[in-house]
């Protein structure tokens, strides 16, 4: 597809979509949203980019291998943070008793490891969307 209007609008709007997705991921423990919603928005922005600029140019920004690695790293990050609770003598995903700093309630840096876990889920979901799209679209 080679349309000037679509390309220009995409170039303008993609940073704002990604900023919104990162905002939703980072505020997952305070406001509606979280890892899944924000990751879906982040993935949709990359899908929009590869729809309007073509798969080759999008692969140059974020290749298939890189998104696969990010996908695996997200779930490994989640499991590692959950296992910290077991090693500190609690259950899987123990939060306060495992020694995570709780911070001030209502602030962005609070709630121990929930923000970190949401970050991992966001990376996982976003790269899953991109990998799904690439797998379906790619010519074989």
């Amino acid at each position: 597809m080679d349309d000037l209007i679509v390309k220009t609008i995409t170039r303008l709007i993609v940073p704002f979509i990604q900023l919104y997705g990162i905002f939703i991921i980072l505020h997952g423990h305070l406001s509606p949203g979280g890892g899944f919603s924000g990751g879906a928005i982040l993935g949709a922005s990359i899908v929009l980019y590869s729809l309007s600029f073509g798969l080759e140019k999008a692969s140059k920004k974020l290749s298939h291998e890189a998104s696969s690695i990010i996908e695996s790293a997200g779930i490994l990050w989640y499991i590692a943070l959950g296992l910290v609770g077991i090693f500190m003598g609690g259950y899987f995903l123990t939060n306060r008793a495992a020694g995570f700093p709780m911070g001030e309630a209502g602030a962005v840096i609070s709630s121990g490891m929930i923000a970190l876990i949401t970050l991992g889920i966001g990376a996982k979901v976003a790269s899953t969307m991109i990998t799904l799209f690439h797998t379906i679209i790619k010519e074989d």
Partner: peptide
């Protein structure tokens, strides 16, 4: 609603 708008209508 957020998830539905992103997943259902978008992806």
């Amino acid at each position: 609603a957020l998830t539905e708008a992103a997943i259902g209508a978008g992806v």
